[in-house]
Deep mutational scan, measured.
Amino acid sequence: EDDHHMEFCRVCKDGGELLCCDTCPSSYHIHCLNPPLPEIPNGEWLCPRCTCP
């Protein structure tokens, strides 16, 4: 699979289990988001950068 997502968290710059945005290459740990997510959501997810007006 050709995955163009970042291999590190945009916030802390560390790797591991990352949540990938469905519209851009950004990846995040769920605990690095503000507010943090309790678990990885099902379905499409947009990062804070893509949901800002």
Rank of each mutant, 00 (worst) to 15 (best):
S26W: 09
K13C: 08
C24M: 00
G16S: 05
W45P: 03
H5A: 14
D14V: 10
L46Q: 12
P25T: 10
K13S: 09
P38H: 12
D14C: 07
G16P: 00
L19C: 10
E17C: 04
E17F: 04
C12H: 01
R10H: 08
D2S: 15
N34V: 10
H5F: 15
N34L: 07
D14K: 14
P35H: 04
H31A: 08
D3I: 15
T23G: 14
P25F: 07
L33E: 02
I40C: 13
I40P: 14
D14I: 07
T51G: 08
L46W: 06
L18G: 02
E44Y: 09
F8H: 06
C12V: 02
I30C: 09
M6I: 12
E7K: 03
P41C: 08
E39Y: 07
R49G: 14
L33W: 00
G15R: 10
C50A: 00
C20W: 14
V11E: 11
G15Y: 06
H31F: 13
G16K: 08
L33R: 01
G15W: 05
L46E: 09
C21H: 01
N42M: 08
I40H: 13
E17Q: 08
I30R: 12
F8E: 15
V11H: 13
L46F: 13
P38W: 07
C50F: 00
C32P: 00
S27T: 11
P41E: 07
T51F: 13
E7Q: 06
L19M: 13
P36Q: 12
E17G: 05
I30F: 11
R10K: 15
L18E: 01
C52T: 15
E17R: 09
E1D: 02
L18Y: 01
D2T: 15
C52Y: 12
P38T: 12
L19T: 13
M6C: 07
W45D: 04
E44H: 11
D3R: 14
H5S: 08
T23Y: 10
S26T: 09
L37W: 06
L18W: 02
C52L: 12
L37I: 11
H5D: 15
L46Y: 10
R49W: 08
M6V: 11
K13L: 08
S26N: 10
I30D: 04
W45E: 03
M6A: 13
H4F: 15
D14Q: 15
H4N: 15
C9K: 03
L18Q: 04
E1V: 11
S26I: 10
D2C: 04
H29M: 00
T23W: 07
P41L: 06
Y28I: 04
E1G: 05
E44I: 09
L37M: 09
R49I: 13
P41I: 09
P38V: 09
P53T: 03
T23Q: 10
D22V: 08
L19V: 11
C32T: 00
H31N: 14
M6R: 04
G43M: 07
L33I: 10
N34P: 06
I30N: 10
Y28S: 03
C9Y: 00
H4C: 13
C47L: 02
F8S: 09
I30Q: 08
T51E: 14
P41M: 07
W45L: 03
